[in-house]
Write a protein that binds this DNA or RNA. Structure first.
Lengths: 354, 354
DNA sequence: TGGATTTGAGTTAACGTTAACGCAGGGATC
DNA sequence: GATCCCTGCGTTAACGTTAACTCAAATCCA
């Protein structure tokens, strides 16, 4: 089954050479209108579809991109992937999905696979700052774009394309809001120490503390892994302190959800007893029963820009052009930080805006 | 950049023919141990990776599968995709992600693309019962597996492999629970009429009504589209009736989340004023602030089984073997249906089980 | 009307891998 | 010592498309 009809099959039927068929089907010159029409009608009859593999072998291009993420269960990624997938499709590219599960050897395995398959470029999302796999790709001048992460340390690595949100500003905005809501002792659930996202957001956190003249010892930091259970664990630890923080900032919403669970499990109320802040504005943060204050970023656009950037590098030919884009984060105020308790009404959004 | 070293490059360096290199690198006989070792060491030095495109052109196999879903933002799909992606990787296959956005012409476009790329098989998830695109694939004997959907109507279509949860039973269990909680007037937020998932779940709903001797006119059904906003809209309509239902069954959790919003927006309390039931047990349904009763299904396993089934068909050679697997759903009781209000304690699960 | 150009094809090779086949030399067999 | 087979390679073609090159016939222009 399923042996596709080829250009040569059509050639045989039409009684011409395969090159003539090629010319007919690809609008090339040097063919008469009549044979062209005849060949096209035969091709339609046989429902001819060109074999992309063979095309790729000749052209050296596969019109395929690798999307390397940690795990699709972190709701941030599906929202990002939407923009990536839709834009890639629009531009005629396919996406191969690769989930590393935070395992750098799986990442290596995936990169080898993607290179073997001849993908034209790769999209990497947040993980380690120093990533030998990526360093290697950069050395080889392989087209790639980083989304929501930066890397550093290795020579030449500064010239890598990326699209990020301003995480420093995001961290700053988040904690500034907490401070304005009256919190001076803040527990931060951060990410792994080798994550650029976590590092940047923490810098913003510290900036806010400094700027508002607060005591740095009132800043508590625990490391999570960006997943919900680690948010739960960290919040549990914060709450079991003799002097627990009055606010918790989960460096992403997913961990903040875990923290939310922990807070409720401890018999406390969010916003009345303890403020909670997240980062990313995943869809569920806006639910009425959650109302998590957070830092919003344009995930769909981020994905879309990343794909445009990557394809520009692949097709554009301008080898030296470096595209590094930093988007602005938004402070999104919901009830979890007690804004409404202070007599203000939380700016509600209509459902259609969600 | 990035012109891979080929078998011929290595042959030139080693001073042998490319066939000899091939034999060395693929553990073929008819080669001496010494030349073999020499060639392998050269290959390692040059970091040789075989060109999968060329291999595929010869073998007719790409070790690639297409995953066709409606939209990755419905949280059901990431949870399913996890199992698919992990299993595919384990078995040496790659996944091309295709989101149709419920548009059958986009689906067609994607199918053509996948066939052009020579994918070895496709995985389709829930959409229409009658899908000409799929009928066509079945006619062509193209390896495919349906996840969480059935199709019918067209000859030969009964022999398609699928993996589903028993949606009839799931619908039954959901409504049976509502009935046991004392609800006799139930609003169902269903899916599009051409969705097999929605149809089956509705059958289960009706079965439960009949079996418990309830009046069918007390069963209200509105059509949603499986997405959250449509759940909101439908619930709004239910609540604005002169005689609103005392329970709402969202045929998937995502729409139930929308219904939850609508209920709260109407100033009502879930479980005290109106019961709410979902289907799928997406991760967020278990959050303490949501506690949505729902029908659970093993999504990861479903994805994993689907991939195994598909690859068995591709590689197994047993062309006539039809694999149709129906998994059992679980009733998951949480607070949204008022179980706890009746003096029972809701069976809580420890955090690690979530 | 004869030479130059254009038109409408066909032939051939290339992309990188796989695989069928060929072939010389050497050891075993009778 | 002739036959046979095995070992260790090389040669060649194939997968389906693209593209450079060739070439005869038709057309054009002076």
């Amino acid at each position: 089954m399923r042996r596709h009809t080829t250009i040569k099959d059509i050639a045989k039927v039409a009684g011409v050479s395969h090159t003539t068929v090629y010319r007919a089907l690809n609008d090339k010159p040097r063919i008469s209108q009549s044979t062209k029409e005849q060949i096209i009608s035969i091709a339609q009859e046989f429902n001819y579809q060109p074999n992309v593999l063979a095309q790729s072998l000749v052209s050296g291009r596969t019109k395929t991109l690798g999307l390397v993420i940690t795990t699709i269960v972190n709701p941030f990624y599906p929202e990002l992937a939407r923009g990536i997938e839709a834009t890639a499709r629009f531009l005629g590219y396919s996406i191969i999905l690769c989930c590393t599960n935070f395992d750098i050897s799986v990442e290596k395995q995936y990169i080898d696979m993607l290179r073997s398959r001849g993908v034209d470029g790769m999209i990497f999302t947040s993980a380690h700052i120093h990533d030998p796999n990526i360093t290697r790709l950069v050395e080889d001048n392989f087209p790639l774009v980083l989304v929501n992460r930066k890397i550093s340390g290795d020579p030449g690595i500064e010239a890598v394309d990326y699209v990020v949100v301003d995480n420093v500003m995001g961290g700053y905005l988040a904690v500034e809001h907490l401070i304005k809501m009256g919190h001076q002792r803040i527990g931060v659930i951060s990410g792994p120490s080798d994550s650029s996202v976590a590092a940047d957001r923490l810098v913003g956190v510290r900036n806010a503390f400094t700027e508002y003249g607060l005591n740095p010892t009132e800043l508590l930091v625990l490391e999570g892994d960006f997943l919900k259970p680690s948010g739960y664990e960290a919040a549990r630890k914060f709450l079991s302190l003799r002097n627990p923080p009055s606010a918790i900032f989960g460096i992403n919403d997913y961990m903040a959800m875990g923290a939310l669970e922990a807070i409720l499990d401890s018999g406390l109320r969010v916003s009345e007893d303890i403020a909670l802040m997240g980062f990313n504005d995943i869809e569920f943060s806006s639910l009425r029963t959650i109302e998590l204050s957070t830092i919003g970023q344009k995930k769909y656009e981020m994905g879309s820009i990343a794909v445009h950037t990557l394809i520009e590098r692949i097709e554009g030919g301008d080898w030296d052009k470096v595209t590094q884009i930093t988007l602005e984060p938004d402070l999104i105020i919901r009830r979890s930080c007690g804004y409404h308790l202070r007599g203000y009404t939380v700016p509600t959004r209509s459902y259609s805006q969600i």
